[in-house]
């Protein structure tokens, strides 16, 4: 057992989980406590209920608009593959569940390790593909900021190192798992302060957009 692993399982995880929880709660709570907007314009006539508008927008954004279907096909499929793969990897592996159990106090059934490994490989490749797409698509490239690359890169690291650790490739297992845990620590520390926060906010912001759009302009 290397000292690196002790550091990773001890102080590194402790500090990064603290920063993660602090950051996420700080951002979420202060966002919800923000005073109501001053809206001078009157609402459109016969506006749907806010709830319906919000949920509608969330559902609508799960698949691309017909008009952009062909252009957005890659981002659509790749995005779904990546997110499902990541969810399986993070929440399906026995070792990960033990981690959550320690923090949350409860666990759940794990999936076969080989299946999780397959999901991990898919996740890794689709993550890399999305980064490549971001770099090669001229419009996307202009839109991208350092935050986008950091968010992507910091997600690649834990997936890649986790795969190496489960496959026992390259270094000794204790070094691999230490590096894996440390990469998760960096991910956790950055999470609340960049676009990774979308994991918590994605449905909130989409609903908000839906509600706003619903009351704006005139009915066609």
């Amino acid at each position: 057992m290397s000292d690196l692993l002790d550091f990773a399982r001890g102080p590194a995880l402790q500090v990064s989980v603290m920063i993660f929880i602090f950051g996420v709660l700080y951002r979420l709570i202060s966002l919800f406590l923000t005073p109501k907007n001053f809206i001078a314009s009157p609402a459109r006539e016969n506006v749907k209920g806010a709830f319906g508008a919000g949920v509608g927008e969330i559902v609508r954004r799960m698949i691309p608009d017909k008009e952009y279907m062909r252009k957005e096909m890659f981002a659509f499929l790749n995005g779904w593959a990546f997110h499902i793969g990541l969810a399986i990897t993070v929440f399906g592996l026995a070792g990960h569940i033990m981690f959550f159990k320690k923090i949350l106090g409860f666990g759940w059934w794990n999936l076969p390790s080989n299946f999780v490994m397959l999901a991990g490989v898919i996740t890794l490749f689709s993550l890399i593909a999305s980064l490549a797409h971001r770099l090669t698509d001229p419009v996307l490239r202009k839109l991208s900021t350092l935050d986008d690359y950091l968010s992507g890169g910091l997600t690649v690291l834990p997936v890649a190192t986790g795969l190496l650790a489960t496959m026992h490739l390259g270094l000794r297992y204790e070094t691999l798992i230490a590096i894996h845990i440390l990469s998760v620590c960096i991910f956790l520390i950055y999470f609340p302060f960049g676009k990774l926060m979308h994991a918590f906010l994605v449905f909130v912001t989409r609903a908000k957009t839906g509600v706003e759009m619903a009351r704006k302009g005139v009915k066609l």
Partner: peptide
């Protein structure tokens, strides 16, 4: 405690951070 879990003190730290 399984290898993939933190070695100690995370519960209190998490509560404090929260």
């Amino acid at each position: 405690s399984p290898l993939s879990t933190p070695t100690s003190g995370l519960g209190k730290a998490a509560m404090g951070a929260a």
